[in-house]
């Protein structure tokens, strides 16, 4: 897993407030040497004397004794990954008037979840609802439906909805029947037809993090996870923070607060949706999507068909 991006020191107060609200203030979050990623603080007396620099949830770098750091074991990650974050209910808001098809979200996502170039957890679609209406770009992640048709059809409970609303995949349980692909009306699911991108024996041997679905595995499903591993740390999902144009908001509907990934402004979810006529996609299917769209009106720039170059960069 790649090292977590460092928070910029000039974060806005609202961003910090959001992080505090969301974060598991369980002490230090370690960036242990090998980058094996998530860690948690342990209370212990047997100090080793070896100091390790770690970053706290509010962005400070502090030194702690190495005995205070333990990597989360695979079984801990698995059981925590099934339960989700208590008292949270995550939503995403996508402002279509701001999307100019920069596709930074797609690249950040592929990087975070170790996807092949043709695999998209989030896909920026070019949409035109009817010949008279204007075309627009529509980033489409998994909608993390409250009534998900995909989890209903899964025969082994490999895909499931957590108490915090996130729909995850357990690729150590998935049998690869692809019924969920058939079941999802939004084409949000991706299958590993080929060996995953990172497939060396060492990469395969990493402990499985269900919240990032890493390492990916041949013959199983993957899809957008709202970057559940980052959300656990109080960070925004990869796509949200990668967007240069302020398209994405992410937050907790229980707190009625969503934070814009570009401006780091936190706003009221209900006001944002009400004032901009937010909607969900195909709500008549009864899936209750938890990704809301703001319509592409009063666009901040004209629509342009993207060239291959803009996609590549």
């Amino acid at each position: 897993m790649s090292k977590k991006e460092r928070k910029s020191p000039e974060e806005s107060p609202s961003r910090r407030a959001f992080l505090k609200k969301m974060g598991l203030a369980a002490g230090a979050v370690a960036m242990a040497g090998g980058g094996l990623g998530l860690a948690r603080a342990l209370a212990g007396d047997g100090k080793t004397g070896e100091q390790v620099r770690v970053m706290t949830t509010d962005g400070k770098v502090v030194a702690v004794d190495s005995s205070a750091i333990a990597e989360r074991t695979a079984s801990e990650m698995a059981s925590e990954g099934r339960e989700g974050l208590r008292g949270k209910k995550f939503v995403m808001v996508i402002d279509l008037s701001r999307c100019r098809n920069a596709r930074k979200c797609m690249l950040a996502c592929q990087d975070h979840h170790e996807l092949r170039p043709e695999q998209h957890h989030i896909n920026v679609l070019t949409m035109q609802d009817s010949p008279q209406t204007a075309p627009y770009h529509m980033p489409k992640p998994c909608f993390h439906c409250d009534n998900p048709p995909c989890t209903k059809v899964c025969p082994v409970d490999a895909t499931y909805k957590r108490q915090d609303g996130i729909v995850l995949i357990d690729n150590e349980r998935c049998i690869g029947c692809r019924f969920c692909i058939a079941g999802c009306p939004y084409s949000a699911r991706v299958f590993h037809w080929h060996h995953p991108l990172k497939n060396s024996p060492e990469e395969r041997a990493r402990p499985y993090d269900v919240e990032a679905n890493v390492p990916q595995r041949l013959g199983t499903i993957t899809k957008c996870l709202f970057s559940a591993d980052k959300v656990r740390l109080g960070e925004l999902p990869s796509c949200v923070s990668a967007c240069p144009n302020g398209v994405f908001y992410f937050g907790d509907v229980n707190e009625d607060a969503v934070t814009n990934g570009t401006t780091k402004q936190t706003v009221r979810f209900s006001e944002l949706i009400r004032d901009n006529h937010g909607y969900t996609y195909f709500e008549d299917l009864g899936t209750l999507p938890q990704v809301f769209y703001l319509p592409p009106k009063n666009r901040v720039f004209p629509f342009e068909e993207s060239s291959e170059e803009t996609i590549e960069e």
Binding site: E118, N123, Y186, S187, F282
Partner: peptide, 9 residues
């Protein structure tokens, strides 16, 4: 599908 097939080989 309900949404167009785009950005795939």
């Amino acid at each position: 599908p309900h949404l167009p097939i785009q950005n795939v080989p």
